[in-house]
Simulated assay, not measured.
Amino acid sequence: MTDAHAIAGVPMKWVGPLRISGNVATTETHVPLATYESPLWPSVGRGAKVSMLAPDGIVATLVDERMTRSVLVEARDAQTAYAAAQNIHARTEELREVVRGCSRFAELIGIRHEITANLLFVRFEFSTGDASGHNMATLASDALLGHLLETVPGISYGSISGNYCTDKKATAINGILGRGKNVVTELLVPREVVTDVLHTTAAKVAELNIRKNLLGTLLAGGIRSANAHFANMLLGFYLATGQDAANIVEGSQGITMAEDRDGDLYFSCTLPNLIVGSVGNGKGLGFVETNLTRLGCRAERETGANARRLAVIAAATVLCGELSLLAAQTNPGELMQAHVRLERDHKTAKVGA
C-alpha cells in the first residue's frame, strides 16, 4: 500500500564551518547538504576549510532580489498590443495597489513586456519578503491579470503564465534580469593555502576555468552559464532546507571566475537566479525547521532578512564545492580516485578490479 505522506530519506551531513562576510551576513557556520553523491561532502568541506584560512573568508554580495511571473494576453493586432503595454506601464502605481490588496508581503517593483505578433507578454517583478515567492507572485499576477482584462481595452485572456517569467527553465532572460536572489561570492586564497590545501596553483585553476568553464561551455551552447557544477551544491542545500528543488534548473546558471594574482588565487561565483525562502511551502518538516534554525535563518529580523541570509549561505556553499572540484581537476586522476574511494564499496571494487 502506498503511503501518500511518506518522506523520502536522502542522506544528509553538515560540513564546514565556512566563513562569510559581506553586505548581508558576517558569520561562521556549518551547512547541511542532502545528497546521494557522497564525495560532495568532503569536497565542499575542503572549500569551507579554505574559506576559514582566507583573511576575509567568502565575501558574499547580494546584488538584487525579485520574484517574477509573466502573464499572456491576446490583442487584435500588434498595434493594439503596443497600446495596451503603454497603458499598463502608465498605471504602475494603480497596479501596485492591486497587489497590496491581495498580499501582506508582495510588492510590485517592476513591469516588463514583450510583443510577438498580436500577443503581449507582461513580466511582473515582485519583492516577496522571506518567502521564495512562487505562489505569492502567481496570486498577485492573477489579481493583476483580472484587473487588466477589466480595465485595458483590446485585450483578452491568454494564460496566467506565459513562460516569459521564466520558472524552472534555463533561459537568457533570467540571467540578464534576474529571478530570485542575485548573489556574487568572492574569495582570495593565499598562495600557501592553494598549495597546501588545494594541492594546485592559482595559475592552473585560472587556466582550467578558462578552458573548461568558459570555452567548454561556449562550445556546448550554454545559456548565460559558465561553471563546473553549481547544481550539485544547490540541490544538496535545497533538499536540506526545504526549497523547491526544481529551481536548480535556473539556479545553476551562473559564472565562475578565477585569476592568478601573483600566486594568490582570486575565485568568484556569480549566481543571478538563486531562489530560496526561509518560510513557506516545504518548511514545515521538523528537520527543515531544525536546519534553518541552526543556520540562523529563523531569527527575529526585518522581513526578508532571513531569506537573504539563507541566499548568501547557499551561494557561499556553491563556491566551496566549485573551488574544490576545479582544484581537483587540475591534477590527473584526483577526481576519479576520490569517487572510487568514497562511492564504491570494497566488494564492488574487488569484483571490478
Score class of each variant (00 low, 15 high):
282 G>L: 01
87 N>A: 12
317 T>S: 15
245 A>T: 15
92 T>R: 10
299 A>W: 04
247 N>G: 12
304 G>N: 03
7 I>P: 05
50 V>I: 09
23 N>W: 10
271 L>I: 02
41 W>V: 02
111 I>K: 10
88 I>V: 07
290 T>K: 09
260 D>H: 04
224 R>I: 15
169 K>H: 05
43 S>K: 12
80 T>F: 10
240 A>E: 09
327 A>S: 08
63 V>W: 00
10 V>R: 05
29 T>F: 02
72 L>K: 06
146 G>H: 09
226 A>K: 05
345 D>I: 13
63 V>H: 06
26 T>M: 07
25 A>V: 15
221 G>W: 02
31 V>D: 14
132 S>T: 12
119 L>D: 00
59 V>R: 09
27 T>L: 02
32 P>E: 04
244 D>F: 01
249 V>Q: 07
352 G>W: 11
46 R>S: 15
343 E>S: 05
132 S>I: 13
250 E>T: 04
110 G>R: 02
3 D>S: 13
66 R>S: 04
234 L>N: 00
214 L>E: 11
331 N>G: 01
191 R>M: 08
21 S>M: 01
234 L>W: 01
79 Q>W: 10
62 L>V: 06
53 L>Y: 01
4 A>D: 13
314 A>I: 07
245 A>D: 02
249 V>L: 04
273 N>G: 07
170 A>W: 00
327 A>I: 06
319 L>K: 01
289 E>R: 12
132 S>R: 12
238 Y>N: 12
165 C>L: 05
3 D>Q: 11
313 I>A: 12
309 R>I: 08
278 S>Q: 13
175 G>P: 08
107 E>W: 15
306 N>V: 05
266 Y>Q: 00
188 L>H: 12
86 Q>D: 02
140 A>G: 02
80 T>D: 03
180 G>Y: 02
43 S>Q: 01
305 A>G: 15
121 F>V: 10
184 V>D: 11
335 L>R: 12
127 S>V: 07
228 A>H: 09
247 N>K: 09
28 E>K: 12
187 L>S: 08
349 A>E: 13
246 A>K: 11
79 Q>I: 05
184 V>Y: 01
225 S>G: 00
39 P>D: 04
192 E>P: 08
133 G>Y: 09
332 P>Q: 06
64 D>C: 00
298 R>C: 08
54 A>T: 11
295 L>R: 08
115 I>D: 10
